[in-house]
Simulated scan of single mutants.
Amino acid sequence: LAMMFAIVFLVQAESGDKRTSVIPQKEHATARLRIFDQNGQPAVSGVPSPTGAIFDVAVGQGGDVFVPDTVNISVGDTVRWTWAESGHSVTSGPPCVPDSQYCSPNDMNCFPGTVSDIGFVYQHTFTQPGTYSYHCIVHCVIGMTGVVNVSGGCAPSGWSAGPDMPFADVRSVGVYFQANGKFYAMGGRDASNVEFTNPFEYDPGSNSWTTKSASYPDAFTNNMACGVLAESGTPYIYCVGGSNFASQTESGRVFRYDPVADSITSVPSNWPPGDAGTLPGGFTVFNNKLYILGGFDVPDNISTDQIWEFTPNPAGWVQKGAVLPVPLSYIPTTTIGSLIYTAGGLDIATLTDETNSFVYDPVADSVGNGRRLQLSLQRGGRLCSRH
């Protein structure tokens, strides 16, 4: 009876630059480089602005540092890095882990990277909100890192119509791929409950959807966990687990999608709970690792409290020591700074929608309580958040 109930619930729930291979000898500026903002004031930290402003950062001013090492800007603003001494790079990603979202001198060959000389100027315009870490590929091990915090605003006119997808779609995972500025719908199924076989790509430049040629390795494409991870400096979309509607079974397989090459490769490191019949719960990326919090154990018809960590190279899983305070499934989860936040979720055993909110520290491997959710959204209302 428990198995029959789990199956019924699952059916319902599924509706030309020169590189250097050695550290070059630095050439120091004869005078301290002073950086000013667009108003002629000394730059300390960027202030969000809707005007497409430029914010300056000095590279190697006074040592192996970025000055300032943190800037706060708005979507559409540009950060301009000026080299105060030679032998440095600006490389996106966590310390010493290039993710190829952007890099000096020209956003190419981010790994192993290229260093530039004194007086060089590199700039990058940020088109999406988020927290963008970067480092000097040569001196990241000694702490030469920086952060660009990009805030996004709500459009004054509200929502605007976009193009229809190629097919009606449910149970897919949306992934933004910073390297090409496009959005991908991974997995899912159509209105007839038939699993999709190819990713869908949305191009904001042409405002259009395209069905890609790459084929998924199997039909377990509902309820997957996906995120962008870099391997050897090249970013991919990794997807984990999932279920099949017709067979009402689950999988723990892992694959990665290369949106640039439009190719899918199986990764020989299955998620253990998935192979035992569990669907991923909340998921997010931190420090180039994919985290899965909780899940839906379909055979036992219960939620889970486990936390799992996936590393792309070498590919492998680790079950963390910390657990969620309560078992949860279908958990909204995200990374903000160095912490992972959850909001609500479902207790499968009691079919209770929870208001719990938790904070997971992946470095300390510890879980704390966040504020209990108290949201009241009226139809037609908008929720806008600026960092």
Rank of each mutant, 00 (worst) to 15 (best):
F5M: 08
L10D: 14
Q12G: 03
P24W: 06
H28I: 13
G46I: 08
T51E: 04
A58I: 10
Q61E: 13
Q61R: 15
F66Q: 14
G76C: 02
W81K: 07
S86D: 15
S89L: 01
V90G: 09
T91R: 08
P105T: 05
D107T: 08
F120D: 12
F120P: 08
Q128D: 09
V138N: 11
T145V: 15
C154F: 12
D169H: 09
V170S: 11
R171K: 09
G181S: 01
R189S: 02
D190L: 06
V194R: 15
N198I: 00
P199K: 04
E201C: 05
Y202S: 02
P204M: 01
W209N: 10
A225W: 03
I237S: 01
C239N: 00
T249W: 02
R253K: 13
V260T: 13
D262I: 00
D262R: 02
I264N: 02
P280K: 06
F283R: 10
G295C: 09
S303E: 08
E309M: 13
F310V: 09
K320D: 12
V323L: 02
L324A: 04
V326M: 08
G337H: 11
A349N: 15
T350P: 10
L351Y: 05
F358C: 06
G380Y: 04
G380P: 14
R386I: 10
